[in-house]
Amino acid sequence: MENPITQLEQLTLNNASRNFLKETAKWTYFLSIVGFVFLGLMVIFSFFAGALFSSLPNSEIMPIDFGPVMTVTYLILALIYFFPILYLFKFSTKMKIALQSKSDEDLAVAFENLKSHYKFVGVFTIIIISIYVLFFLLAIVGGIFAN
């Protein structure tokens, strides 16, 4: 009996699996290109949002100039949005190369980028849910002490 640590395990892709991965790579490529386009629009909009908020008159509700704050906020959001799109793009391009060249190394790199994409999205989701829970708890505490 062979030791499982030294035993070589191989996974082969049949034609159906290759076709599914090829189609997945096409869709992820499309989604990543659309993501990059919207990312560019977000960066452009960040400067218009800054100008828009700068044109609002200062009042008691908004005593400071929110133009630069909104520009920086949108640029930070664009930077955060950039990484999952990049991972998705790298997955699609490496997967296409791996399927054409039948390279195990390119296939591994493609799946590594897919893993990074989902890991980033998962961690970001946990952070956003945590922020929502924190705001909800602060609202409850604020409501209790307001009465």
Rank of each mutant, 00 (worst) to 15 (best):
Ile131Cys: 08
Gly50Gln: 04
Phe83Leu: 09
Glu23Trp: 00
Val141Thr: 10
Ile61Trp: 02
Gly40Asp: 03
Thr73Glu: 01
Leu13Met: 14
Glu9Gln: 13
Leu56Trp: 03
Ala139Leu: 09
Tyr81Arg: 04
Ile5Gln: 12
Leu77Val: 10
Pro68Cys: 05
Pro4Arg: 06
Ala139Met: 09
Phe120Asp: 07
Ser46Thr: 06
Asn19Trp: 00
Ile85Gly: 05
Ser130Tyr: 00
Phe30Asp: 07
Pro4Gly: 13
Asn19Pro: 00
Asp104Cys: 00
Leu75Thr: 02
Ile80Phe: 14
Ile129Leu: 14
Leu114Pro: 01
Leu11Thr: 14
Lys115Arg: 13
Gly122Met: 06
Thr71Arg: 08
Phe53Ser: 09
Glu60Ile: 06
Thr125Gly: 15
Ser46Ala: 15
Met1Ala: 14
Met70Lys: 09
Tyr29Lys: 15
Leu56Ala: 12
Val123Trp: 05
Tyr29Ser: 15
Phe38Asp: 06
Leu77Gly: 15
Phe20Leu: 14
Thr12Gln: 10
Glu112Lys: 14
Phe66Ala: 14
Gln100Gly: 11
Asp104Arg: 04
Tyr132Cys: 13
Leu52Met: 14
Met42Ile: 04
Asp106Met: 09
Ile128Asn: 10
Asn58Tyr: 01
Ser101Asn: 13
Val69Asp: 07
Val109Thr: 11
Ala110Trp: 02
Gln100Cys: 00
Ile5Trp: 08
Phe47His: 10
Phe38Trp: 09
Ile61Arg: 10
Ser116Cys: 01
Val123Leu: 12
Asp65Phe: 01
Asp65Lys: 05
Ile131Trp: 03
Gly142Leu: 06
Leu41Trp: 03
Ile64Arg: 08
Leu41Glu: 01
Tyr87Trp: 07
Met42Lys: 06
Phe120Thr: 13
Asn3Asp: 15
Thr12Val: 11
Pro4Ile: 06
Ile44Gly: 10
Gln10Lys: 10
Leu11Trp: 05
Ala78Ser: 12
Ala25Ser: 14
Phe53Pro: 05
Phe89Asn: 10
Met1Gln: 08
Gly122His: 02
Asn14Trp: 01
Val34Ala: 15
Lys94Ser: 11
Lys115Glu: 08
Val123Ile: 15
Arg18Met: 12
Leu52Phe: 14
Phe136Val: 12
Leu88Glu: 10
Lys26Arg: 12
Ala98Asp: 03
Asn15Cys: 00
Ser103Phe: 00
Leu99Asn: 06
Asn147Met: 04
Phe38Gly: 15
Leu88Arg: 08
Lys119Trp: 02
Ile5Ala: 13
Leu137Tyr: 02
Lys22Met: 04
Met1Pro: 10
Thr93Glu: 08
Phe45Leu: 12
Leu134Tyr: 12
Ile131Asn: 04
Thr125Lys: 06
Glu60Met: 11
Ala139Asn: 08
Tyr81Lys: 06
Leu31Glu: 10
Ile126Trp: 06
Ile85Asn: 11
Pro68Asp: 08
Thr73Asp: 03
